[in-house]
Design a protein around this nucleic acid. Structure first.
Lengths: 243, 243
DNA sequence: CAGTGGTCTAGACCACAAC
DNA sequence: TTGTGGTCTAGACCACTGT
């Protein structure tokens, strides 16, 4: 049996999705929900906080919790999603072509920055295609310390699935930068760029639940196929927590 | 006097910043902090949750809260920051040049999508320069319903400051998309693009605390000057809350 | 005023990590 | 087993929104 507030959040999210609570409606008040689900009010509040963080509702003091217009748009690359997960969600035909799979060391620019002691890694370079069009060139450095071996079969399918389900690694967070940069000749060829030499570069540093650095990824996207969707609450209204 | 858990979070954040708690260290346990600050444990937990959301610590069940390597990188465009706020943080010389300031209506592609009833807006087009280089062309549609008048002086400085401090509007959240698109001839000229005709386009829909739509912004960035930094916890491990 | 969400408490029990 | 964080409760008081 899972945790109550997650169950309640999932239940409410489902009702919002099926428009039992439509956009603009108010949810029942916290005391009411507390009775409905037969839990304490704090538990209801945790559930509602989940929904607010997910952008499904907006809490308004003195009034209630409003369901937000769920007109969200396509292809979110945020929140540490993998190519494979994206693919499932969007029901597109995806394919992966391995370009390289060797041993390597995490680039020095990264390892010095993180003061890594172990830099032995597996390097994987892959071309991602959607509906038979090349979209992304992914390069991964995966620390040997956590994943000693990666087979071509594993690189072919979802590495995340392999890491999480088969190896039991728990990925927790990532820092990501997005820039636009000129591509190398080989990447231009692989992505079949014609009118430009620019690609969108997403660099990710991925960490495990115990805060250890685990993976460095460089994704080079075709600029005409790239879309990043973000939902953000305004912050720093309070005590700061800056930098 | 502000809220306790925010104060505590700010205090801890400060101590982390000044390396009283260094990266890799564990914070005192929750019961210990509870005694130190003379508050209940739930209040401590709220403070720690703030720090975790901000990416300053990582909570590990059974072990404690670790201070995360704060080697975060520059120029975060996330979390609904304004050009002006960015400028202050980074201590660069910024300037704004107004290109256009007229009445207009929110573009139909947006208004139909949000089923707006009121579409009367002020349109502002501005060129942003950093260290005397053109960086961004911003176009804003601001609903007249909330901001009847915008003077050139106000458009020249920070509109956010005007909205929040002078008008008392409370901006709460935004949805944002990032794409790469060919620029118009005028934008190419304004941004002084030479080797490319591509710009990074950030489109934002901004909402107030009462969930009402308030502003639509289109920012066109010089690709060589664009950088987006993101910090994300992995989600969807729990009950879902998908889409 | 009554009803809403926001904060806070003092305790309880559970899940996990380390010894 | 001990100590850690994770969940949950039943109640309290405060701040804000409406009437």
């Amino acid at each position: 049996m899972a945790v109550k507030y997650i169950q309640i959040a999932a239940d409410l999210a489902n009702k919002i999705k099926h428009e039992q609570y439509a956009a603009g409606d108010f949810l029942p008040s916290e005391p009411t929900l507390s009775q409905l689900y037969n839990v304490s009010r704090e538990t209801i509040r945790k559930a509602l906080t989940e929904l607010a963080d997910a952008g499904l509702i907006q809490k308004i003091q003195g009034k209630g919790s409003v369901v937000i217009n769920a007109a969200r748009i396509a292809f979110p690359v945020s929140n540490i999603e993998s190519f494979d997960e994206l693919n499932k969600q969007k029901q597109m035909h995806a394919a992966t072509k391995i370009i390289e799979l060797t041993d390597a060391r995490v680039p020095f620019t990264i390892s010095k920055h993180l003061s890594l002691t172990e830099t032995a890694a597996t390097y994987v370079k892959r071309l991602r295609l959607i509906n038979h069009e090349p979209i992304v060139v992914d390069e991964d450095y995966i620390l040997k310390k956590y994943v000693p071996q990666i087979s071509p079969q594993q690189a072919q399918s979802s590495l995340y699935h392999y890491f999480e389900h088969d190896l039991g690694l728990e990925i927790d967070y990532a820092t990501k930068t997005i820039t636009v940069e000129p591509a190398s000749a080989s990447v231009i060829k692989q992505l079949q760029l014609t009118n430009t030499n620019l690609v969108v570069v997403v660099r990710s540093l991925t960490y495990l639940k115990d805060t250890s650095f685990f993976q460095y990824t460089i994704s080079q996207h075709r600029p005409d196929k790239f879309k990043f969707v973000d939902f953000a609450h305004r912050k720093n209204k309070n005590g700061g927590l800056i930098l």
